[in-house]
């Protein structure tokens, strides 16, 4: 059985997600009012069903919240990777690491938008590998491989036109 803190967090997340789903459904329903009826049959059906299911789920949650507490799932949603890492309990005491990893993901996304794939991706690999205290050779080698793949396989080989970096757009080029 999970500890009270884990249960509290998982229940809070549950309520936030349900509220988010209901809010999205209501927003969709309000946007439907301006559309011609022929374009709204399916959206009406889905949005109303969503609200109903959310109400049923919330009622069940209020009646017996313990039913959904941090227990292993029956289905095979995560069959591809280690199932042991699922659940709020698996993340306990790892908040800082999770934040750091997501920061890395967002920094990579932001950097690509600013300076483009060709510069941002190799730089990210170099910085990440060095930050994790691996060898310089691996960091530089990995960065070089990615630079070469993007330049010669994607851009020149496959003629892929990556979006123009924002810095270039702002300062001209």
């Amino acid at each position: 059985m999970a500890d009270p803190e884990t249960i509290r967090v998982s229940r809070t997340i549950d309520w936030i997600l349900v509220a988010l789903f209901v809010a999205t459904s209501v927003l969709f329903i309000s946007l439907l009012l301006d559309l011609p009826p022929r374009a709204t049959i399916f959206p009406w059906f889905v949005s109303v069903t969503m609200v109903l299911v959310a109400l049923v789920y919330s009622a069940g949650n209020l009646r017996n919240p313990a039913r959904w507490d941090d227990k292993p799932a029956e289905g095979g949603d995560d069959e591809e990777t280690a199932a042991a890492a699922i659940g709020i309990a698996a993340l306990k005491g790892r908040g800082r690491e999770i934040f750091r990893m997501f920061a890395a993901v967002y920094i990579l996304g932001g950097a690509i938008m600013l300076v483009g794939h060709l510069v941002a991706v190799p730089l990210f690999i170099l910085a990440y590998v060095l930050y994790r205290r691996e060898s310089w050779v691996l960091a530089a080698g990995g960065a070089a491989v990615f630079f070469l793949v993007i330049q010669f396989v994607f851009i020149e080989g496959m003629d892929i036109v990556f979006p123009e970096p924002m810095l270039l757009r702002w300062f001209g080029g």
Binding site: F21, F28, V46, T49, M50, V53, A73, G75
Partner: peptide, 24 residues
């Protein structure tokens, strides 16, 4: 999939809603 049918249905519904974005 998962331990609650209602959660699965809500997620399926969310997927349907996202699929409706764009041209009808």
């Amino acid at each position: 999939s998962g331990k609650s049918a209602a959660r699965g249905l809500l997620m399926g519904g969310l997927g349907l809603m996202i699929s409706m974005i764009g041209q009808a």
